[in-house]
């Protein structure tokens, strides 16, 4: 479970296929993700994006192929053996996944306390401090005692991010972090996602419908001194830009993989749908 950055990729898919009943949700997916790298995943509704993210931490069972997370093979582990591995990945779920019966503070605290059952690394006071830090990170410290039903959709999304990153996982999975939000809130959320990546150098998979989200991740970096996003330009920043690659999915298959420049040059009709005129494809 503990990840040594020098020891190789964080995540590897090897010819993974997954079937629901008679239809394939994932077909022959192979991909690799190294520490600090980002993958933006586009695709029409039902193309298998959520399924792909869930397969990463073994929430769904694949039919063929292998998935290695932090060097361990998720696909060959039993459900009970996966818990340790999962604590290395933070997840923001498409439908939120916040526990209705717990307050915002308790929701964000959940990953810390639950991990504690295994090892005694966080004391309750320490946990609360980290929860407040995570909530401050998403600029929602004031909602600590509120319940998820009492805050707005955009705020819930940010609480979800706080819960995903509170354990400082080396990998964060974001399922549609900006879907259904106004552009201002959406940009605020993407700024947080970029900040999380650049402050902690975590790897991330980001499913989205907005082309802009990909642009923010690939062309900007968070500057901790000025506390804002800066545009990456020039040759010096080329390597930073290369950390972000784009995946386009269609009917369970990866039909495009490459950098933003490659994506914009693509002549494929399906792939072109995800470039630039983002709002048309929202949902």
């Amino acid at each position: 479970m503990p990840n040594d950055p020098a020891s190789g990729p964080i995540l590897e898919f090897e010819k993974v296929s997954l079937r629901y009943g008679d239809s394939w949700a994932l077909r022959d997916i192979s991909l690799t993700l190294n520490p600090g790298e980002t993958r933006i995943i586009f695709g029409a509704a039902g193309s298998g994006k959520t399924t792909l993210l869930k397969a990463v931490i073994g929430l769904v069972e694949v039919n063929e192929g292998r998935i290695r997370l932090f060097g361990q093979e998720v696909t060959s582990l039993q459900e009970s053996q996966r818990f340790g591995l999962r604590s290395g990945a933070g997840v923001l779920f498409q439908e939120g996944g916040l526990f209705d019966s717990l307050s915002v503070g308790e929701n964000v605290q959940y990953p810390l306390l639950n991990r504690q059952r295994g090892d005694t690394e966080t004391s309750p006071e320490d946990a609360e401090k980290r929860v407040r830090e995570a909530l401050r990170f998403v600029e929602l410290e004031q909602t600590f005692d509120k319940f998820p039903a009492e805050i707005s959709g955009g705020m819930r999304r940010r609480v979800g991010i706080a819960r995903a990153i509170v354990t400082e996982p080396p990998l964060v999975l974001y399922d549609s972090p900006t879907a259904g939000l106004d552009p201002i809130t959406a940009n605020l959320i993407m700024a947080l996602v970029a900040k999380e990546r650049d402050v902690r150098n975590s790897a991330s998979l980001i499913v989205t419908h907005r082309y802009q989200d990909g642009e923010i991740m690939s062309d900007f970096r968070y500057d901790p001194e000025r506390e804002e996003l800066l545009h990456l330009n020039g040759a010096a920043d080329a390597r930073k830009r290369d950390r972000t690659k784009f995946i386009v999915m269609k009917e369970g298959q990866i039909v495009f993989f490459g950098t933003r420049q490659d994506l914009e040059k693509s002549t494929d009709e399906y792939v072109k749908r995800f470039v630039r005129h983002e709002e048309n494809h929202a949902q």
Binding site: K54, I57, L59, E79, S80, F83, R86, S87, A89, V91, F93, Q94, E95, G96, G97, L98, F99, D100, Y110, P111, N114, R115, R117, G118
Partner: peptide, 18 residues
């Protein structure tokens, strides 16, 4: 059922609770 469709069940499993 509502916990299932809002992915709270998945979240539980992801966070180490059976």
């Amino acid at each position: 059922g509502s916990m299932k469709v809002t992915e709270q069940i998945d979240a539980m499993r992801a966070l180490g609770t059976d």
